[in-house]
Design a protein around this nucleic acid. Structure first.
Length: 273
DNA sequence: CGGCAAACCTGCGAGC
DNA sequence: TGCTCGCAGGTTTGCC
């Protein structure tokens, strides 16, 4: 999936394409993704005009003129595409088709179905169960070195696992956790509570890597595409992710890979202490 | 409660 | 060529 930079790239693309558009018809090809679609999903969205598209953590928020909000998560493989007209035939894993008043169609495709779509009302958004336990946005002033220091002090889990916890800070997933720790020169295996004095470089590294990735249009691995089909190119600038046994660009030592909480972590033992 | 493995589901590349 | 295995950007659940 998409981590924050990819979701933000999709948000930008969808907003440019869809702001002001009216949804004419919604077709569900199945009744669920990771969770069931809400009852009245199609009825609620039909006839609505899209006011704007926002993001909270890795969730897209489609604000409608009725004050309903469509919450969408891309999971690992979710993709939106905007087509000039509804396709005659659908490819595998096209799950939702939004036909627009102007004749275009928006397709949501998600092979693994780890994504989700839910509906809420604008005024209920902040207390929605999906958002109740989320930490600060990485670019919010609440995500300060002092905050991170205090949050890490409470945890014994490895610092990389802590940074991926959406309750600590949102938007950082497996790729950018490895990349940020490399930039901050922090060993991902270090217990969180022993990394507290590195909080400031970690905050700076997280913000920098996410910002640079957004500026590059995100990273494209197997299946992330822009709304337009154009692929991001930040993956060419990974320092450690996916570079097992390759030389560290800084010190030349081979990049190591380990498994933490079920996820692959890449790091340079020479640079990260 | 904290920490971690497994589960959800499909596709794809590597290796045999 | 074709099969099996392991792994993939996330999140939730359930077990110690």
């Amino acid at each position: 999936m998409p981590e924050l930079p990819e979701v933000e790239t999709v948000r930008t693309g969808l907003e440019a394409a869809l702001k002001g558009a009216t949804i004419r018809k919604v077709t569900l090809k199945r009744k669920d993704l990771r969770v069931p679609f809400p009852k009245n999903f199609a009825q609620t969205l039909s006839g609505r005009t899209i006011k704007t598209i926002g993001r909270r953590a890795k969730y897209l928020l489609v604000y409608l003129d009725s004050d309903d909000v469509l919450i969408a998560h891309l999971g690992m493989t979710g993709r939106f595409s905007v087509e000039p007209k509804p396709p005659k035939s659908f490819t595998a894993h096209d799950h939702v088709i939004f036909e627009l008043q102007d004749g275009r169609a928006v397709i949501f495709n998600d092979a693994r179905r780890f994504g989700l779509m839910q509906l809420t009302k604008k005024e209920a958004l902040a207390r929605h169960s999906l958002f109740a336990h989320l930490g600060p946005e990485p670019f919010d002033k609440a995500f300060s070195p002092e905050y991170l220091q205090a949050a890490l002090a409470k945890r014994k889990t490895p610092v990389k696992v802590a940074l991926m916890d959406q309750e600590l800070v949102v938007g950082v997933g497996n790729i950018y956790a490895s990349e940020a720790l490399f930039l901050a020169q922090v060993d991902p295996r270090k217990p969180a509570h022993k990394a507290t004095k590195r909080a400031k470089p970690m905050v700076e590294a997280i913000q920098r890597v996410l910002k640079d990735a957004i500026a590059s249009g995100g990273s494209s691995l197997r299946d992330f595409l822009h709304v337009t089909g154009y692929t991001g190119d930040f993956q060419h600038r990974f320092q450690v992710y996916g570079r097992r046994d390759k030389s560290c660009f800084v010190c030349g030592q081979p990049v190591r890979t380990i498994r933490q909480a079920g996820r692959s972590t890449f790091f340079c033992a020479g640079c990260q202490k």
